[in-house]
Structures are given as C-alpha cells and as structure tokens.
Write a protein that binds this DNA or RNA. Structure first.
Length: 661
DNA sequence: TCCTATGCCTTTCCC
DNA sequence: AGGCATAGGA
C-alpha cells in the first residue's frame, strides 16, 4: 500500500481522485511532482495497467524523474507507464498509426535548422531568394509558418499581427508554406509542428485510429498544462475521449512559453473544454523559506492582472533575498563566483547551487571564469552536444541510411565534396527524392571531379544499411568514413574528433534505428550526458530550462532592461507580463538563498540596447522590504491487454466543437 | 553560371 | 560559430 498520510489534503484529493476530468492548480513548490508521482502509483495500485496510463510532461527529464519516483512506490511495473513530451508521444503514435495521415513508419523528424534549410530551398526554387530583399528570410518564414500553426491563425493574420512589414507578401508566404508542406510529405519528413498537427488530424478525422488509440489511454495525465498550445490541449482531450479520465496540472502564473504558442487560456478554460471537470487547488509551498516567497508574492502582485494567489510556507525562518549591483558583466561574474565558493566552503555542494540567466549566452563571462578556475559546471539550455555541427554531420549520414528520401540530410552531406555547392547538391538530392528507389547513383556524375567521392559515399552508405540491426556498428562504419573528411571541414577537427567517439555507445542506448534518429532530435543529448561525468557540479541554466527544478541557492544574473527583461519585450506589455512570470519562475526555484544581480551596464552584447534600471523589479511594491541590498520506452503498449471500450460520441463531438471554433 | 573564399554581423526562450 | 553578401575564379 502506498502511504498517503505524508500528503496534505489537496494532494490526497488529487492522488485518489475518482474517474473523470480534473484540473489541479498547483502553485510553485506545492508538491506538484510528488502529487503526480503518487497519482501514477495510486492508479497502478488500484489495478490500472501501467501501459494504460499516459503521462505527458514538458521534458523527457521530467518524465523520467517522475517514473523513477513512482517506481520507488510501486516497483518496476511503473516503468511501463507511457508518455513523454507531447512531441515524443506523437512520434511514437504516428510511427504505428501514421498511415491514414500519409506517413510511412520510417519518416524522419527535422529540427529547426533543417526546417530552415528546407524552407530556404523552397524560397530559392520560387525565385524569391538571395538579393530579393523585402522578402522574409528563411528564419522569419519558418517563424510565421510555425506561429500560424501553433496559434491556429492564418498566415495573413500572423503577418498583420507580428510582421506588418511583410503584410503585402502574404500570398507569396502562403505559397512558400504550401510548397514546404508538399516537400516534407514527398520526403517523408516531419517537423516539430507536424508531429502535433498530424496527431491531432489522426485523432479527429480518423475515428478508427482514434478508437484504437484512445481505448488504450485509460488515464491521461498532463503536467505543466499552462504551457500547452491549442493543438496540445485538443490532443490531450481526444486521447482521453473514450475513457474521460483526464487530469491536467499547472500553474497559470508560470506560463512562460507564449512565444511558442502556449495559451494560458487552456488552463483557465479547462473546466469548459472538458465537461464535468472539477478543480483542485494546491496552495501550500514546501520548497522555499518565507522570505523567498514574500518576494515571489511581490512579483505576482505586480502583474497587470493579478493571479489572486499567495504562496505560504511553514518555513518562516530564512535569509532575505539579497541584491547586488556590480558595475558590468565581468564584475558580476567575479562576485557571483565568489559567493558560490563561499557557500561551498559553508557546506553547500555545488550541485545544490544554480546560476540562472534569461538567455543562454548571458552566462558566457561566468563560464569563462569557471573554466579558468577549474570549477565543474553543467549547462542547461543553449546548444547541446547533439546539436554541434560535427555531431549533426554524423546524424545526417545515419538519417540517410534510415530514410534515403531525407533531402535535408543529403544536402548537408553532399556539400562536403570539392566542386559541389548548393546548386549541385540540390540537383543530386532532387533526383534522389524523385526516384522510385531513392539512392545515390554516382555513375550519373562520371565526368565531374567529385565522381570518385560519390562512389565512395555510396559504398559506405550501402555498407551501413546492411547493419540496421546493430545501430552501434552502423554508426561506427559511418564515423570511420566521416573522420577522414573532417580535416577539410573544420580547422579545429582534432577537438571535435573526441566527441565522435561517444556516438556509437549513445546510439546503442536506443531500441532501434528509428528511435535513435527521432528521439535524439526531440530530446538532444547534453554534453555531460554524452561524455558522462558525475562529479559535484554547479548548474548553469536558462530560466526556461530550470522549470520544475529547485536548488538550495539560486543566483539570478543580468537583471537589467534589455537582458532580463529581454529587449524584445520592453515595449510590448503582453510580453512584459511573460517576463514577469519568468521572474516568478526564477525566484521560486530557490529553497533558501536567493541572490539577484542587477549590473549597471553590460558591454559584451554590442548593438543591443540596455536601458539602465529594471522595469520588472521597479514595479514591485515596497521592493526594499523584500530584498536586502548588499555591496557588493514503448514497452507495454502493444503487449498489454486492453479492455474493449466504447467511444463516447457526445464527448468527442463536444471536444471537436470546442477546439474548432 | 555556379562554386569558393573572405570579411562582416549578430545571436531569447525550446519541443 | 554560423549566416550572409560580395568579390573573384573555374
């Protein structure tokens, strides 16, 4: 029996909630993770098969952590709970059930960079490229297309609202978007947005598939619901449409992904979007000392529309948050570093201290100092191991073996050869994409100087495709060939070589080739995870990547207009509200000590303007009373037996109507 | 016409 | 560290 006596009343109500729809509004530090973990364990104990529970979280890390904790309550079987991020769950479902929406099981997933180069290709093809200024760049194009999808608005509307300077190009942009979709389908590639769009389409327009999928989702649990967008909310509702058991957990004051289409309204409207939904509140904070929460409450009070909530804790004793005002980012780095070492001497391990920043490059001066002093740190946010250029090179080779129609991967590889640039590579790739049996045919290019290189490439790819059963071996064959190419690609290839050594063992962690190429895109592996050190290390993280985590000591850096709050938000009241919520998230990561650093100037990012002061902090009433100023896996899904379930047609109709306004 | 080398500029947040 | 424009070369 799992022990519910350690939970408070609200938590217990959520954990042992009966069937039906529930919204759990859980403020920062109120034991949300604990509650979800116990809920999973409780359901299993009640006899629900683990594989009939779907747990959707914001990061894979969060999912793993919860399942590990659930395992400690009910044992191994908790590992058969299904889920992950919305995107990775969509990936899993679409590989099995993607037929009706036009996907073969071997589709590839492209990341942002790949998507941009594909858009760029389309743009060039349509003669809108290069010199033709006045037409949006690939980055803007992809932004507009993605925004339009994630906020269910037309491209023209997005342009009018957010990129008025391109308003008159709406027709052309729509055309680019249309061709871009066509190309992706022809190549059997999907981007991040497609995963959501196609799953929503599958669930809403293909009743047989919905019936099969939703029947296996006896209980659907969604974490961080305040950061879901419209599509994700619809997907969650449709997954739960057969059994009607949907529990969403979130905190409207912590919604920080508006730029990605997240809608706070999802959580506010949940009771309407799912009939009969009940609301539970978790209010008591177990994480932080009262002085930290006082500041957090001050941040909430300064919001344009209040959230009408106050955090309280029984941990009344604790130090007041401290603010420092260093001259510039270098003095800031030195002062923070000094504090870190001071705390370490006092007995707080490095891993219990975290430095948080608004943008990942804002930590650069500190990282330099940390490196100089040989202080170990782990970085969350920013570029990751599997996103480094040379690692992506290898992945593109693997992707070609996995899906030979993956044009973006071909383009990257083909331009490595002398005499082959953008144009030549596009010609070759287009030929491959369109042929019945997609593969490289070197003999076509006999008279070119890169003929010999293509012959070699074709040979090594063929060799690799015979090794699909042994992903580690497959990767090694490709790396052996790639390594010889590296000196001509990167000046510092020696440093990069070391990274390649770990890729085969990384690949072996995944079940098969499909899982490897798709999951690595959806959840890029971090540097420390790839090379694996487990020494006591400081955490350096963006605020976004710190969501859901907590530390004894938190340092919040670069609190200056232009950095945090971001310069992009300064003249937009709505974006400023998101900055405010970001500040709230940052403050509530600290258990005990919180240091705010508000430098007087930042010199490293030239061009960007920094307005002296800090609008976020200044809008907090009686700030001086709150802050002291100092000087200074898939298993189980298919194997589990699923009871016959009747679809609830009325519910499905209701959900569809609600989301298709 | 297309490819390559060079120099300048810039860089939120993330699945 | 990568994107982009531009100039110069095949």
């Amino acid at each position: 029996m799992i022990d519910l006596s350690t939970l408070n009343e609200g938590q217990r109500a959520a954990v042992s909630a009966p069937d039906g729809a529930f919204l759990v509004v859980a403020g920062a530090g109120t034991g949300k993770t604990r509650t979800l973990t116990h809920r999973v364990a409780w359901l299993i104990e009640q006899g629900v098969a683990p594989w009939e529970i779907v747990l959707l979280t914001f990061t894979r890390r969060a999912a793993n952590e919860m399942l590990e904790r659930a395992q400690s309550l009910v044992g191994q079987r908790a590992q058969y709970v299904r889920g992950g991020t919305f995107h990775s769950f969509a990936n899993q479902l679409l590989r099995r059930h993607g037929g009706p929406v036009g996907l073969s099981p071997d589709f590839s997933i492209i990341d942002r960079g790949d998507a941009e180069s594909l858009v760029n290709w389309v743009r060039a093809e349509m003669g809108l490229g290069g010199r033709d200024r006045g037409f949006p760049t690939k980055k803007v194009l992809l932004n507009v297309i993605s925004k339009s999808i994630n906020t269910s608005r037309s491209i023209a509307d997005v342009l009018v609202d957010e990129f008025p300077q391109y308003e008159h190009e709406a027709q052309q942009v729509e055309e680019v978007a249309r061709v871009y979709q066509e190309r992706k389908r022809a190549q059997q590639v999907v981007d991040f947005d497609d995963l959501l769009v196609l799953l929503a389409e599958l669930l809403s327009k293909h009743p047989a598939a919905r019936q099969e999928i939703a029947a296996k989702c006896r209980h659907v649990l969604v974490d961080e619901y305040q950061d879901t967008n419209k599509l994700q909310a619809k997907i969650a509702a449709l997954l739960a449409s057969t059994h009607g058991n949907l529990m969403v957990v979130g905190d409207e004051a912590q919604s920080i992904y508006g730029f990605r289409g997240a809608r706070v309204e999802n959580i506010l409207e949940f009771p309407d979007s799912f009939p009969g939904a009940r609301v539970l509140l978790l209010e008591q904070n177990y994480r932080s000392v009262m002085p930290v929460l006082d500041l957090a409450n001050g941040v909430l009070d300064s919001a344009r529309q209040g959230y009408g909530k106050r955090l309280f804790s029984e941990l009344t004793e604790g130090p007041m948050p401290v603010a420092i005002a260093p001259w510039d980012e270098w003095e800031q780095a030195d002062l923070v570093l000094e504090q870190i070492l001071q705390r370490q001497r006092e007995g707080v391990p490095l891993s219990q201290q975290a430095v948080l920043v608004r943008g990942s490059h804002q930590a650069t001066p500190l990282e330099l100092r940390l490196n100089e002093r040989g202080i170990p740190f782990r970085k969350f946010g920013g570029q990751r191991f599997t996103e480094a250029a040379h690692v992506k090179d290898v992945f593109c080779l693997v992707r070609i073996v996995h899906n030979p129609r993956d044009v973006t991967a071909w383009l990257r590889v083909l331009t490595w050869f002398d005499g082959l640039g953008q144009k030549g590579a596009q010609g070759i790739a287009a030929r491959i994409e369109q042929s019945l049996v997609p593969k490289l045919e070197p003999e076509v290019y006999k008279r070119r100087k890169y003929h010999a290189a293509l012959v070699e490439l074709a040979k090594v790819l063929e060799q690799a495709s015979d090794l699909k059963e042994d992903v580690g071996e497959l990767v090694e064959v490709l790396i052996d060939w790639y390594e010889e190419r590296m000196p001509s690609l990167y000046e510092d290839y020696k440093r990069r070589l070391r990274d390649l050594e770990v890729i085969p063992s990384l690949a072996e962690r995944y079940e098969n080739l499909s899982a490897f190429v798709s999951e690595v895109v959806l959840d890029p592996v971090g540097e420390e995870e790839a090379h694996g050190h487990d020494e006591d290390a400081l955490v350096v993280s963006t605020i976004h990547s710190a969501k859901g985590l907590e530390w004894d000591v938190v340092y919040l850096m670069s609190l200056i207009n232009g950095a945090f709050p971001s310069g992009y938000a300064l003249d937009d009241p709505e974006q400023m509200e998101e900055e405010r919520r970001l500040l709230y998230v940052a403050v509530t990561r600290a258990r005990r000590d919180l240091l705010l650093s508000a430098p007087q100037r930042l010199s490293s990012s030239r061009g960007q303007y920094f307005v002296p002061g800090n609008e976020l902090l200044e809008s907090i009433e009686d700030l001086h009373t709150l802050v002291a100023v100092a000087d200074g896996g898939d298993a189980g899904w298919s194997s589990g037996k699923v009871q016959e379930a009747e679809e609830d047609e009325e519910l499905i109709q209701y959900i569809m109507d609600f989301f298709d306004d």
